[in-house]
Design a protein around this nucleic acid. Structure first.
Lengths: 184, 184
DNA sequence: TTGCGCATGTAACCAGTTACATGATTTC
DNA sequence: GAAATCATGTAACTGGTTACATGCGCAA
């Protein structure tokens, strides 16, 4: 119930690291090169207000700081629960096919919310799904390569390479976490 | 003027290869694994109607085929011009940072609409932009890696790897086209 | 006669884009 | 006193999602 957009979850993840104002978020989105969230106020402020209406964040106004008033948001217990529930969802085929970016976002804040073991489990599940999916992409390409225009075929290959890159990334991330666990 | 959504351009690109009905498009989106367009009728039919209102496609109803009537769409001269104009736009920094998928889509139909030379020029421009952008990503990561949580850092690395993969792809695609040109 | 594959469509809802508006403080 | 930066917000528009509705022909 009451699910959020990707932007909503990104905000929850960010706010879980510490309280932020809308303008702070704007700066994060403007400077952080990945994930492609818009830094426009028309996206950020309404999204924060929605989260507050849902009870996932709360805000206080800081009058003190000399400058214009700031509204600083922090995550609530319900907000954290919602974030975790989203991160915990099983990875379905359609996530891998059409929502790779969402999966990466689910992972991006995961070791702070669910811990290393769950993050490892997520990566293993992700890698397993990718290992199953990539061969079907190759079959699709092989079956159609002849009748496709060159640029279409190349674009498809680019897509396949993205999946292969993610798989290598997931496997090397698994190794990374496992080393960290042993060192502990 | 009168620009389209990505879906609109994807439809124009598809229709440029040959006339299709809405249902044909649906099948393409359902089976073609890349690019993540929804195969839901609520997306496809309104988009085709918008294109027709703009004069970019036209449709005829085939009553003949025994089954239920089909409305078959084909691209118009204006539609092709709009597609080409979109593909020809210079690549700006923001395209590389936030709209990689759009760039790939612009390329996917390019050699049929603009020819091999233009496609090559596009790939070279794309590769040049990526070559400039990737080092800034590494600098960003190096500057912040210490204070980032592990999963956040890994997610960022995943993003960087995607850009590096695209760059390798662009370079190998350039070589591919150049070989083809010589063989001719 | 039930259900599936073909085939087209509509409507409510929602979120993001773009553009605009406001206002305080600091810097030149 | 102009411009830049900090800081928050609103409103119109647009397009995609989800779910629903319809209807034909065929096969089990």
């Amino acid at each position: 119930m009451s699910s959020n957009s990707l932007l909503g979850y990104a905000l929850l993840g960010l706010l879980h690291q510490g309280p932020l104002s809308g303008y702070d978020v704007k700066k994060v989105f403007a400077s952080s090169p990945i994930a492609g969230f818009s830094d426009s106020p028309g996206a950020i402020y309404p999204a924060l207000n929605r989260l507050e209406q849902q009870g996932f964040v709360r805000s206080e106004i800081q009058e003190s700081t000399g400058l214009r008033r700031r509204r600083v948001f922090h995550i609530t217990a319900n907000g954290l629960a919602s974030l975790k529930a989203w991160q915990c969802k099983p990875i379905v085929d359609d996530d891998v096919v059409r929502r790779l970016g969402e999966l990466l976002l689910r992972f991006a804040f995961m070791d702070q919310t669910l811990g290393v073991e769950r993050s490892l489990a997520f990566l293993r599940e992700f890698a397993a799904k990718l290992s199953l999916y990539i061969p079907t992409l190759h079959r699709y390409l092989n079956a159609r390569a002849e009748q496709m225009p060159v640029s279409g075929r190349l674009a498809l290959e680019s897509g396949i390479q993205e999946y292969e890159t993610r798989l290598r990334w997931a496997n090397s991330s698994i190794v990374h976490y496992q080393r960290g666990r042993k060192a502990k």
